[in-house]
């Protein structure tokens, strides 16, 4: 936090706040503050309120139940299976993203004629939204009309993995971009020095490049985990939560708990998702800040 506790641009000017300057500052901040207050912090307050109240089965009335709803929802099969599906989705997509991003970036990080074309192709999945990539995979792995007529999406044991294929492919562009940027930041002198020391290409990558890429991988792990936990469009397009609820993730459950009788349940699940996301965001911010510190000379 050191960076931010220090006064902004003018460390030399030690003076008290001027009223006019503070007024201008808040005028500049006002638009963002309003948006954040109405659409981020008020909802947080509303979620806590809702989580403490339980609706009757018709959704016509609700009563204060305190924290009992937390324990009942958080230990319910629906929440736990939703959480498990979301976690599995992350487990499927993150390692594949790291490995595939590395393979693509290492292959395209060299001086060859036409390498820019390959780099653009490797980036191309960035131009497909989750909805579009899901529609594409719908045609690839659909049991009736797919290219590969697998039954993967109709089999409760495999459906989640099947859905995650679309994310693995759609994430390729992003993973490639991020690892490539990391590779390009590795100083040439280090690689040359390692070569002079008799390191072969493989050992050079393992002992010199990979350690230097660790912040890049951390960033990628966080980003892909957040994407994984937020997976929603894929499931709507490919399976609608089925078969037999095998692809109902936490976010899918939250979206479908918008009926009045489930308000409290949905609120508790949202707060559960918040805890998971918050941990990822905390790591993301610490990376962001470290980058700021290295970035300023």
């Amino acid at each position: 936090m050191t960076l931010w506790t220090r006064a902004p641009a003018s460390t030399s000017r030690r003076r008290r706040f001027s009223g006019k300057e503070a007024l201008i500052a808040y005028a500049c901040l006002l638009p963002s503050i309003v948006v954040f207050a109405v659409f981020a912090y008020y909802p947080l307050y509303a979620l806590v309120q809702e989580a403490l109240r339980q609706s009757n089965s018709f959704g016509t009335a609700s009563r204060y139940v305190g924290f009992s709803q937390f324990s009942s929802v958080l230990s319910s099969g629906e929440f736990l299976s939703g959480l498990a599906h979301s976690a599995l989705y992350v487990v499927f997509t993150v390692p594949v993203g790291l490995v595939a991003g590395t393979v693509l970036a290492v292959s395209a990080h060299r001086r060859l004629r036409g390498i820019k074309i390959f780099q653009t192709i490797f980036t191309s999945t960035v131009a497909t939204s989750t909805a579009v990539s899901s529609v594409i995979f719908f045609v690839l792995i659909n049991p009736e009309v797919g290219i590969f007529r697998t039954n993967i999406l109709n089999d409760p044991r495999w459906a989640l993995l099947g859905v995650s294929f679309s994310s693995m492919w759609a994430n390729l562009g992003l993973c490639f971009i991020i690892v490539l940027a990391g590779l390009q930041a590795v100083p040439d002198e280090l690689i040359e020095a390692a070569t002079l020391d008799g390191f072969g290409a493989f050992r050079r990558f393992l002992r010199v490049t990979l350690p230097l890429l660790s912040p890049v991988y951390l960033f990628l792990i966080v980003v892909l985990s957040v994407f994984g936990f937020q997976a929603y469009a894929q499931i709507v397009v490919l399976t609608q939560g089925g078969p037999a609820g095998a692809t109902q993730t936490l976010v899918y459950d939250i979206f479908n708990s918008q009926t009045p009788n489930l308000q409290g349940v949905g609120a508790v699940m949202s707060l559960g998702l918040l805890v998971v996301t918050a941990m990822a965001a905390a790591v993301q911010f610490s990376i962001l800040q470290r980058r700021v510190q290295y970035g300023t000379r």
Binding site: S32, F36, V38, F39, A40, Y41, Y42, P43, L44, A46, L47, E50, V226, F229, Q230, Y232, V251, I254, F255, S257, Q258, Q263, G266, A267, S270, L271, L273, L274, T277, A278, A281, A282, Q284, F285
Partner: peptide, 21 residues
């Protein structure tokens, strides 16, 4: 700090109350 905090409140988390709003 309140600005940073919004990173932890993606639309998936605040969806239900925001739709209500």
């Amino acid at each position: 700090v309140l600005f940073i905090g919004t990173l932890m409140l993606p639309i998936e988390v605040t969806l239900i109350p925001n739709v209500q709003t």
